[in-house]
């Protein structure tokens, strides 16, 4: 495991670990804004809603004679159904509570995804083996080209986040006030969700769609425990995410049956759990203050 953690387990493993770190960094930074805006769980519905798109994209690519597992193609399909899922969350939460809308979209889209995956399996086209890797992450199966896609995606997302960091922070802090200042809150919220979707997409192979929500929430919640300042919360969240992503990929590469997503989440939670006790806004400080 040590060799893996120190990038000495071969060129491909090192590349994958660095890719996972970039994903974690991006997820932490985007997740921090999402957390401050109190929209974290919407990303869970979005992530689950990628599955039917992935299945359909695979079928489409396999039917046209291509490689069904071509990553950018799968990501395009995933983006389409995830976007549709997001629209459904918005339509349903106009009539019912948002948490119900999230549960509905999450379960029905995921159900549709499972249906399509069984179609893929029974259709017997285009080497579907390993497609389930998108559920819980399978970093070890990643290729150098996949890492390039992740790195490019992460760079674009981080650039956009950097450009929009001030309006995002203002909307997260006080949407009413931001509206008063002439900010277009709806547009900014949509932009934030679009960036979140980006994170979900580049995280599919690394962490998987079931647990990517953890990489958006846990580092952000950790950052929030350490600081009251937006910039610092984002910075800490990005660091925690990067460490968890890197460690998750490296550790999962050392054993055959360790899904990257699960290990990454447990690592992030370890940092969070420690912070719950020792951070300035954590239990010990509160307990001390409350006496």
């Amino acid at each position: 495991m040590w060799a893996s953690l120190t990038l000495q387990a071969g060129y491909n493993a090192a590349l994958v670990s660095l890719g996972a770190a970039m994903l974690g960094l991006t997820a932490g930074a985007v997740g921090a804004f999402l957390y401050l805006r109190r929209r974290a769980l919407v990303s869970d519905a979005m992530a689950h809603a990628t599955l039917p798109g992935i299945g359909l994209a695979f079928l489409a690519m396999a039917a046209t004679g291509g490689d069904g597992r071509f990553l950018p193609g799968l990501m395009l399909g995933a983006a389409l159904t995830a976007g549709l899922g997001l629209l459904c969350v918005q339509a349903i939460s106009a009539r019912l509570a948002e948490d119900a809308a999230i549960g509905i979209v999450l379960s029905t889209f995921y159900g549709a995804g499972i249906v399509i995956l069984t179609v893929v399996q029974s259709a017997g086209v285009g080497r579907p083996a390993g497609l389930e890797g998108v559920l819980l992450g399978q970093a070890s199966a990643m290729l150098a080209s996949d890492v390039t896609v992740i790195a490019l995606g992460a760079a674009v997302i981080l650039l956009a986040l950097w450009a929009l960091r001030r309006p995002f922070a203002m909307v997260a802090f006080d949407a009413g006030h931001a509206t008063g200042l002439g900010l277009r809150v709806r547009l900014l919220d949509t932009a934030l969700l679009a960036l979140t979707l980006g994170v979900v997409l580049i995280g599919l192979q690394v962490v998987g769609l079931i647990l990517i929500v953890a990489l958006l929430i846990i580092p952000a919640a950790t950052g929030r425990l350490w600081s009251n300042r937006v910039g610092i919360v984002v910075l800490i969240a990005a660091c925690v995410g990067a460490v968890a992503g890197y460690g998750g990929a490296a550790i999962s590469a050392t054993a055959p049956n360790l899904p990257t997503g699960a290990v990454t989440v447990l690592l992030a939670f370890a940092v969070f759990g420690l912070s719950v006790f020792i951070a300035p806004r954590g239990l010990l400080a509160r307990w001390h203050h409350g006496r």
Binding site: Y35, A40, L41, L136, A214, I218, P259, L266, F269, L283
Partner: peptide, 24 residues
């Protein structure tokens, strides 16, 4: 209550972590 984590996020943290632990 103890750490002031927003309810939805607290839920997300707990169930993803426990699910991940179950998977491992």
């Amino acid at each position: 209550r103890g750490a002031g984590v927003e309810p939805g996020a607290a839920m997300g943290i707990v169930f993803t972590t426990m699910f991940a632990a179950g998977v491992v």
